[in-house]
Amino acid sequence: QEPLTASMLAAAPPQEQKQMLGERLYPLIHSLHPSMAGKITGMLLEIDNSELLLMLESPESLHSKIEEAVAVLQVHQISEASHKSN
C-alpha cells in the first residue's frame, strides 16, 4: 500500500480526508491496542491532518501519541464510572 501523501489528502474533501487517515491509522493502533483501537483512532482523528500525516511517517511519534490517548481514555473512563456511581 503506497504511503498517504499530503497531495492525496488535498485532492479529497475534508470528510474523506479524515476517513483516509483513519483507515491508515486504525490497523497500526489495532496492532497495539485491539480493544481500544476504535476509540483511540477516533481521538487521534481530532488532531490536525498535517500532524496525523507526520505521525504516519514516524512510528515513534505515532506510538507516543497512542500512549497519550490511552492514558486520556483511561482517565475518561474512570471519570465516567465515578459519574455513574454518584
Binding site: Q15, K18, G22, K39, T41, G42, E46, H76, H83
Partner: peptide, 26 residues
Amino acid sequence: NGSSSVNWPPEFRPGEPWKGYPNIDP
C-alpha cells in the same frame, strides 16, 4: 453535560464513515 462525554471520543470503525467530523471546526 454528561450526555456528550458518553459518546466521546467518536469511535472510528474501518469501512464506516467516521462520526466525529462535524465536531471539528474547519
